[in-house]
Design a protein around this nucleic acid. Structure first.
Lengths: 325, 325
DNA sequence: ATGAAAGCGCTAACAT
DNA sequence: ATGTTAGCGCTTTCAT
């Protein structure tokens, strides 16, 4: 394959001039520029990017640790990241980890070996202690509350969100409230469960394990919850549902089963995806896309200025009242 | 960050020795090896991979163009690829394209700039003409029938598969047969549709557009087809369903709707995923994982030996008769 | 405006 | 067994 020397020789210029043309630097005469471009075109030449990476000391590529690209929650974050990356002309190395630590370590190691310039973490299995050891090799930004002095973060206060949703339900008179979550033991889920229990405790209400549903991700999962509900002697009158898709499936199935929403079953969901508008679901907008956008911007700042301090940005959520409460 | 020179100096050896230790070459004394390893450990050193890539002229990384990682069809292919890549110690740069050409071009360009050593294509939007132009930069292997003299391929004859399934249904006496596919205009879908029409024509049976369903990917989609079926005055008595998930959803819903399978509705599906065994579905094993495995092996061969010729391997499918016909 | 040359961090051929 | 050294292909000073 041709290299920059070949191009220089064939165009009758020096390699420096070829490089200038390729990188759109000023101070190149029109004739030489044209000559170089012509040779480049005729040979269908592209620079060896590995040489560029080596000399520049960076790859213009950042890694993204994301458990499941297709889950709406992460998909929304990814949307914000991709949007900003496109603007900044930064390439994304997206690794769908399925929460496997070896996948996470792989990207961490790529940061160390300079294959990527920085790392965005949407959600992870590794603890922050293991991750922060890599912060010396390049900026790492989390899309969840990291509480770490080496790793910047952008997040929503899920405790407060859940708490506010609970309050709304309690104010409406509900005394038997359940919830649907995804993973039971993630950082976010733990906070949400705490908010749930604290809200109940504040009213001296009992905690009922049979009203807590986990592994809820899809429309189907939501429908399945309703089928379980139908068999319960003491059905909860309201449900907090993490994820509009789950809520939609749940409401659809509830109606099929003859339940009235919100009279027989009130629902508050989270994320404010388009589907929640379609079903007129009361939801808490977690501003996921903005989290992604902001996280990327934070990373870019640190890339451009090493001295940029670690920051923790909490984005305010927003309750959107619609017809399911 | 420390480089190999620093390590050499601190360990009191030459850079060559450090390189030998790092790459586990023979002919290094135990003392020097230990000294080097100790410095490497204490400095937490990793080689700059871009320099390695540059001098070696390769990255040990291959790209994978895959439209949707989470679709069972592609997931199975990916499984085979990942399995072999792990064995060969080759890294995968998996790009979920959603069939967007710019994503496909991105990987093609990475091949050209030597960021990846080769490319595996599970399914694509770009035509082979555009793709083959990049074959000069590194091996490209397709997991579908490529009919191209620059690009090797591993594939199943979907025409024959559909044709055989149709014949089984016709032999059983069915005269009103429909099908469920994903994308309507992909190469595979076109072949399947042709097989479907040819089979019908061979019996002088009419082609009914209302029995052809598209955009079928999930359990939910299958269930939705049944709901449409229920409203039809002239319901087909049998269905060819591309994808066991769709078939499972379809059968589940059919039973709910009071249809007997196979008496009222016969089903043949494709891929032989675990779920088809669960539902006892008659299916055609498309050996997707083996396609992935074989495609990777083909790529590896071409990587190790430039002279390896372009090959086209057709894997035989296998009809698995169970209870839905 | 242009070119010569140094050097990014590494591997491997060659010499000893 | 170990070291010296010539590149890999590019960007970027520094001269001119």
């Amino acid at each position: 394959m041709a290299n920059i020397k070949d191009i220089a020789r064939m165009a009758g210029v020096s390699v420096a001039t070829v490089s200038r043309v390729l990188n759109e630097h000023p101070y190149v005469s029109e004739e030489k520029r044209a000559a170089v471009l012509e040779v480049v075109r005729s040979l269908n030449y592209s620079p060896n990017i590995n040489a560029v990476h080596l000399i520049k000391g960076k790859t213009n590529m950042i890694g993204v640790i994301i458990p499941y690209i297709n889950l709406p929650y992460f998909n929304s974050i990814m949307e914000g990241i991709a949007e900003e990356a496109l603007k900044a002309n930064v390439h994304l190395l997206v690794s769908q980890t399925n929460y496997a630590v070896n996948k996470e370590n792989e990207l961490l190691n790529m940061l160390k070996t300079k294959q990527i310039d920085g790392l965005l973490i949407c959600s992870r299995s590794l603890d922050w202690k293991s991750i922060e050891a890599y912060a010396q090799y390049g900026p790492i930004i989390a899309c969840e509350d990291a509480k770490n002095d080496k790793i910047s973060s952008v997040y929503i206060d899920h405790y407060a969100g859940f708490r506010q949703a609970m309050q709304l339900l309690l104010d409406k008179g509900h005394r038997s409230i359940g919830y649907c979550l995804g993973r039971g033991h993630s950082y976010n889920s733990t906070n949400r469960r705490r908010a749930y229990e604290d809200a109940l405790a504040s009213m001296n209400l009992p905690i009922r394990e049979d009203c807590m549903f986990y592994q809820c991700y899809s429309i189907e999962d939501g429908a399945a919850v309703v089928r379980q509900l139908m068999d319960m002697p003491l059905r909860p009158t309201a449900l907090l549902v993490a994820g509009d898709q789950v809520a939609a499936g749940l409401i659809g199935e509830a109606i099929k089963c003859g339940l009235r929403v919100p009279e027989d079953l009130a629902v508050i969901s989270f994320d404010n995806h388009p589907i929640s508008r379609l079903f007129d679901i009361t939801t808490i907008d977690n501003r996921l896309t903005e989290i992604g956008r902001t996280a990327f911007s934070l990373l870019l700042e640190r890339l451009q200025n090493q001295e940029e301090p670690v920051r923790h940005i909490e984005l305010p959520f927003r309750l959107i009242e619609r017809a399911t409460v």
